[in-house]
Amino acid sequence: MSDEIVYLTQSGPYWDWKVALDLFLGGAGVGALLFAILLDAVLHGKYRRICHTAAWLSPVLVSAGLLLIMIKMGRPFHAYHTYLNANLTSPLWWGGIFQPLVVGGGVVYAFLWNRPDQNVSLRRGLGWALAPLTLIVGSYHGMLLSTMVSHPLWNTGPTVIAALLSFATSGIAIVLLVHLARMKWAGRLDQQDHIATFLNDLAMVRNVMGALLILQLGTFVLWWLDLRLGGMHAQQALEAANRAYGPVFWGIGIGIGLILPLLLGLWSILQGEASHRRQQIRVIATSSALIVVGAFFFRLALVLAGQVPPAATSIF
């Protein structure tokens, strides 16, 4: 006779793809905003068009995420209670406070980018004011899961770091993807000198992106070790998650979303000047698309896998 425990509670998962997509969109949105702020601050207007794209993408993405979470709620019209009652221990409360602030501030920031030569100091000042908020919202997306003691798969430190790194990489990737699309529609991808300048300017972003992807990969190894070498419940949670969502997480989230873009980037660097410029553009577009797809599936697998009930354990 095999061990059997029957404990019927309401069947999960309680949070589905809508929550995963909210985490992805919200993360990418604040990542895009921070990207714009840092590019503007560090390189003083060198990447104006990219900043413009990023600044407008941010409120759209974060709002879309918020809309999804409102749809997911049982009683969205009671959400005003979040603003009437403070619960400092609730990550959702922090999210409810800071995400609308990021959206509101992001819209003003984006409007300021419509005329990049005007109100520069105001734009940069607002950017610096919004930067800490983007980090708070980025952390919130990890904290929401990592503070759940009921779910050993989420209840780890690397969950927060992975969310922070993922918001940065997916934010940059989605901005590059949309920006390349804008360039194509505007016919700027046909201008050789424009492509050359773009690629030259983008070298630094590519290096930062590579470093972030490697850090993210390292965080996943740490997270895996944390669970694999953790207590019985952590090991069982990892086993259950791997059984149900292993291919999605490791295959799409890590393999396609992290390792493949890294290899493509490495290949592009090794090609150097010999590489055709159009080919380099294709590599950037493909890598960005893979990172975006991987980031979504990483979050989807994480959200769903964390809710998989582990195998039977002793009751007490």
Partner: peptide
């Protein structure tokens, strides 16, 4: 109680974990 964003889940004076149905937004946290 710790995770409820609206304090719908709360502790009362008798040590009970109570739920205020009006404040609940159905987030399932």
């Amino acid at each position: 109680v710790a995770h409820c964003p609206t304090t719908a889940m709360h502790k009362d004076d008798n040590g009970l974990t109570m739920h205020d149905a009006d404040k609940c937004i159905g987030c399932r946290a």
